[in-house]
């Protein structure tokens, strides 16, 4: 077992640098350390100017998305032991402008997320006060797509995003699908019309890497392809594919 491992971290100071560049740090190797632990060690002991986002350290908040050895990962779930003997190349998530070091500008994603209206929509007022009960089978219809933590790793893995920057993208469409399949939601056809418009499902060429990198098994590619299939049936069948 090595005593140290090399961490190559992308650095970018917009006030001084013309482009991002790598900087190497030797960090102590610990069997149970993740990349986020190593970055925290660097920030605490070597270079306090390193910038990165993090919060929960347990794969729930979705803040610490970064590219580790070229693959989008949560820093809190990328164990150093999986990258022996190193070096571990830590870069900001791809397909987002770099604000500073590993911090990227996520405003485009936030706008796309709002656009799909990821909340329950009902034309009428509620069926009544209190609970909106669902059977386990009804919950199973959308449970997988509700697991998204908005970590944006799928956007980092999607090669369509840099080619079609207006593409709504995997996570936002998966969330739209989650509400479309929710028995309490009443905007299914409207959501389908939105998603079949420009910059949405038909921009996806089904590379599938969004699902491969998803830390929560959401499978956004499945959400997108299912929506394509249903919208196609909707055009062909009199009952709208439902």
């Amino acid at each position: 077992m090595p005593e140290t491992i090399t961490l190559s971290v992308t650095r970018f100071d917009p006030d001084r640098d013309s482009a991002p560049h790598p900087q190497s740090y030797e960090v102590p190797y610990q069997e149970d350390w993740v990349v986020l632990d190593a970055l925290n060690w660097v920030k605490a002991h070597v270079d306090g100017s390193v910038n990165y986002r993090w919060s929960c350290r347990m794969g729930i908040c979705g803040s610490c998305g970064m590219n580790v050895n070229g693959r989008p990962k949560l820093g809190c779930s990328a164990f150093l032991r999986d990258y022996l003997p190193g070096p571990i190349v830590v870069e900001p998530m791809a397909n987002f402008p770099v604000v500073r070091d590993l911090v990227v500008d996520i405003s485009s994603f936030m706008d796309k997320l709002k656009w799909v209206k990821p909340w329950i929509i009902r034309e009428e007022t509620a069926v009544g006060p209190g609970e909106h009960r669902q059977t386990p089978a009804q919950i199973d219809q959308y449970r997988q797509f509700s697991m998204c933590i908005n970590c944006m790793l799928c956007y980092s893995a999607c090669p369509v995003i840099p080619i079609e920057p207006e593409f709504v993208g995997p996570a936002a469409i998966a969330l739209a699908r989650r509400y479309e399949l929710d028995s309490r939601d009443r905007a299914g056809q409207e959501r389908l019309r939105t998603l079949t418009g420009s910059d949405a499902i038909w921009d996806c060429s089904f590379v599938g890497e969004c699902s491969a990198v998803c830390p929560k098994g959401v499978d956004p590619a499945k959400a997108i392809q299912q929506t394509k299939f249903e919208s196609t049936l909707g055009m062909l069948l009199p009952w709208g594919g439902r």
Binding site: F96, S107, S108, D111, E166, D199
Partner: peptide
């Protein structure tokens, strides 16, 4: 309703939404 229009992306494509 879902019928709000989404403005076009900025020059660098990062401001879509």
């Amino acid at each position: 309703r879902l019928d709000e229009a989404r403005p076009a992306a900025g020059v660098d494509g990062v401001t879509a939404g």
